[in-house]
Design a protein around this nucleic acid. Sequence first.
DNA 1: ATGAAAGCGCTAACAG
DNA 2: CTGTTAGCGCTTTCAT
Lengths: 337, 337
Amino acid sequence: MKPTHITIKDIAKMLGVSPSTVSRALKDHPDISEETRNLVKTFAEKVKYRPNALALSLRKQKTNTLGLIVPEIVHHFFSSVISGMEDLAYGEGYTMMICQSNENFYREVINLQALLDHRVDGLLVSISKTTREFNHLHNALDSGIPMVFFDRICDELDTDRVITDDFEGARIATTHLIETGCRKILHLAAPRHLLIGKNRYEGYAQALKNHKIPLDESLVLKCDTREEVMSMRQHILTLAPQIDGIFGVNDSTAIAVMQVLQENGYRIPQDISVVGFGDGPIATIASPPLTTVEQKGYEMGREAVRLLIQRLENPSAMINNQTKIITPSLVRRKTSR
Amino acid sequence: MKPTHITIKDIAKMLGVSPSTVSRALKDHPDISEETRNLVKTFAEKVKYRPNALALSLRKQKTNTLGLIVPEIVHHFFSSVISGMEDLAYGEGYTMMICQSNENFYREVINLQALLDHRVDGLLVSISKTTREFNHLHNALDSGIPMVFFDRICDELDTDRVITDDFEGARIATTHLIETGCRKILHLAAPRHLLIGKNRYEGYAQALKNHKIPLDESLVLKCDTREEVMSMRQHILTLAPQIDGIFGVNDSTAIAVMQVLQENGYRIPQDISVVGFGDGPIATIASPPLTTVEQKGYEMGREAVRLLIQRLENPSAMINNQTKIITPSLVRRKTSR
DNA sequence: ATGAAAGCGCTAACAG
DNA sequence: CTGTTAGCGCTTTCAT
């Protein structure tokens, strides 16, 4: 049994008026007499008339749909972003069409095409890790569709953007360690060729510099996953006696080192303080609960949608592209003093 | 600059043929001469023609879009489900329109309406915690739209369903505890009026019964959040000396008890074994890593979409509604022997 | 104050 | 083999 919907034409027929009259009455067009207007409206309500969004979109050349391409849904940060986007978009009368690239370039291209085929009004995108080449995005942009990048932005495209201030987050984290008494701070870093690796490293370096603490490169380890921590445990343990603080580039590495240390008799934070980055669900259940930098995915999502809708609704307004920077904040818990 | 798309009409005009010819050529209609077909196809490719999905949907009365209503996106289980749905739907040529109810009944109703307005071909829904009344879903179903419930199903609606076998999961978990030597097993349970509370409790009870271990109700505590564990810590500690195993209704409570115990000198699993339920990201980073029951959200998502598409593509086939049961499996890690 | 007609982009009878 | 026509559901001139 196919769902059959009532149309304006149906109503017109049943009421003995023309479709145009029904259409106008429904949207309070001034030309329509109060009488017919009420007639139509009450009738429409009675038969539960609902406008067909498809027809509307086709007619108006506007879908009120926002297309999203995200690397992975199953990721606390990204799902927070999506949640923020959904909430705001929904509140503004837009719906979202969501695609995940699964960190796969080819799929990102297809996703983009699908969204374009559906004539979404605008695009929200965070690029996949395997994306090295940006023709697909270039083309989309050239065709004139509004687009905002978030988190994983693309430098060679001039668009609105929302990013977290990784530098500042790292600086705050490291400063916190310094201000609570640490002097020899180990940094577990992401590769320098990744933006987050670079920026967080630099924030760390800046904090040291601000406090006249010399930067010791032997205290910066390329080590950004739990697994890597585990495989580098020996090295970390040889370093341990000479350090009093650790800044991990993300929560999982921070928690992983903490565990390695604890298993070897170190007390956190009495012997060594630890700060992470991200504030996912694992931070709170760590033992002790992890002091970390909160990344505000939800807020980032809202901001991205805000930027996009603003552009959609200020038609031609040649506003310069904006880069909105979300400043993360420190969440003090128990792994630091 | 509005994105302007090339249409079939445009192509027809430029090639001096009729729109229908173009339409047919593009889809390899047998009536079209190979010559014109190639002409049209290469030209279409050159100008990057892309069919307008909106127009297509309107025409075909089929949107190839699946509507999803989920309580919360930011939740490991649900985001896994979404991911599974997205992947399969995408592979089958469908796109997804995703709404979150935020556990709010009113919003669930609106979400449903929005999806219906967009004429999604089918619905995937997991009901919100605050939903006590099902008229909106009843109406949708009566109107004939295919619908599959997953995880949080609604008993009074006769539809396809996908659920996890909570009873069996709990039975497996408890059995594992028993088989590794535990006899006095504490169960941290969800309220009995919730399905998961009831089913997991019963699975626990069944396992005991199968092994002729008497069920001691004083070892069943209504306690299903981390916070609750913390506020009941005293009581738990008085119970601790007499127990050798714990089955937590979810991972966070399991991890929380484990921590309370550890802080008080108990060794896990030497003194007490612990098993959780869910297998979210927190399970692996717990220390020691948590033995738990894997809930297979991704698989559930795929299954739900499979059921839905099957119904969409077997037009009238009056297949009886199916309830697909996902049997969770035990993931042995280090909190049990 | 209301209706007729055209058209958004596409497809599918029906002609020829 | 190709073109003409009508229509999916809706809005919006242009008439009346």
